[in-house]
Design a protein around this nucleic acid. Structure first.
Lengths: 211, 211
DNA sequence: AGGATTATTTACCGTGTAGTATAAATGTAA
DNA sequence: TTACATTTATACTACACGGTAAATAATCCT
């Protein structure tokens, strides 16, 4: 996960300089998409939040769809993102643990909208914006794929009992995480989601567990 | 749960008779909302699917918002609904079991759109339609409330160990069900969701279980 | 200073939206 | 047959949407 500085076109050295911070504007755009979904966000919502005009938005980011995709990139590479760091924990149980508690913390953080922009965006996305829909779907599929591979590796390392199915484990964890996104969007508290995390971990196999 | 025949205004005995079946039209409307969400469904989508014109729709159902609310009523009272019947199972474990497997079956049933219209509708609903948003939110809150009460009753009956918290159980189950709705909407199969249901039940306390 | 290049502002375009006014069509009741 | 009540179809309104053309402003390079 490289620390990318800017997700948009690099600033040229010639011509009138851009009057706004392109990364700060993208942060604002992400915040709006996060709160209102893709279709629910209008260009007026975006330009108001970003403090720029429509032509500036179009010249800097292409169009609404490309702006959204860039916002999603930013979302996944944020320092507070919990998914990728959790994958690197030493045991499968710890992977699940960090992912669940990280989600409980992140999805209810009041410094940004509640829930998950990927889950919210996908459901509030008409079939007219099929590119966006598919991009978001593939993100979630990729996420579960990474979980599967991580658990497969854990099994190979003897970190998980031989009888467990990494596919099922990954799907179960993915389902709970997506459910937590809905709960957070509904106003659930951090502790509410922590309790869900604890329950979820009860059915998660550890090494040497009879299960 | 009475077997209501019609969710719309009763047919008068005088004047030009209505040329369409109002309940069949409502079924069609539900199907569209289910597939496309609230904001994602246009009046043209609705009138096309229902086979009627806009003025007929407005005179029969009021407006888009009221039509949606009536469609949700229909959704919850359908014969294939799984939530309320599951609540009446004799033990808490069986309640959870029937609800999870019922959801796995229902949400992937190819006779209608995948997932849950309440989850999908709420997320694809701009703040302009705050009435709809709140109505859907209260449905989910009520659902979890019913689960809580059912598990509280189970505890009083000695059907659940003394140390379990009905609130946590209800929230956990609700979270998984909502996650399953997302998974189904993403194209998960019935078996995929059945596996999730089985995993979920592993952390669900039974009577006389050490847990 | 004077192009060249890029960003900003303002005003606009075509389309799709939810919702409605109006009048014709179709039935019942007297 | 006539009066009445209601639904139908057509056409329309006002507005918000995503996106853009044209002119102006600000900077760099020569």
């Amino acid at each position: 996960m490289p620390s990318v500085k800017s997700f948009a076109s690099c600033t040229p050295c010639i011509g009138r300089p851009r009057a706004f911070d392109i990364d700060a504007a993208l942060e604002k755009a992400l915040e709006v998409f996060w709160r209102k979904g893709y279709d629910g966000t209008s260009l007026t919502d975006l330009t108001d939040a970003m403090g720029i005009n429509k032509p500036s938005l179009y010249s800097a980011f292409g169009n609404k769809e490309q702006l959204f995709l860039k916002a999603i990139e930013l979302y996944e590479s944020r320092p507070c993102a919990f998914f990728l760091p959790a994958l690197e924990k030493p045991t499968a149980y710890q992977v699940a643990e960090h992912m669940l508690y990280g989600a409980a913390m992140n999805m209810t953080d009041t410094n940004h909208p509640q829930g998950c922009v990927i889950v919210h965006g996908a459901l509030s996305c008409s079939e007219a914006a099929s590119t966006v829909k598919e991009a978001l779907l593939s993100r979630r599929v990729e996420g579960e794929q990474k979980l599967r591979e991580r658990f497969k590796q854990a099994k190979a390392e003897g970190d998980l009992p031989a009888h467990v199915d990494p596919d099922v484990l990954a799907r179960y964890l993915g389902t709970v995480l997506q459910g937590m996104a809905i709960q957070a969007n509904n106003g659930a508290s951090t502790d509410d989601l922590r309790q869900v995390a604890a329950m979820t971990l009860q059915s998660f196999p550890r090494n040497n567990q009879i299960a």
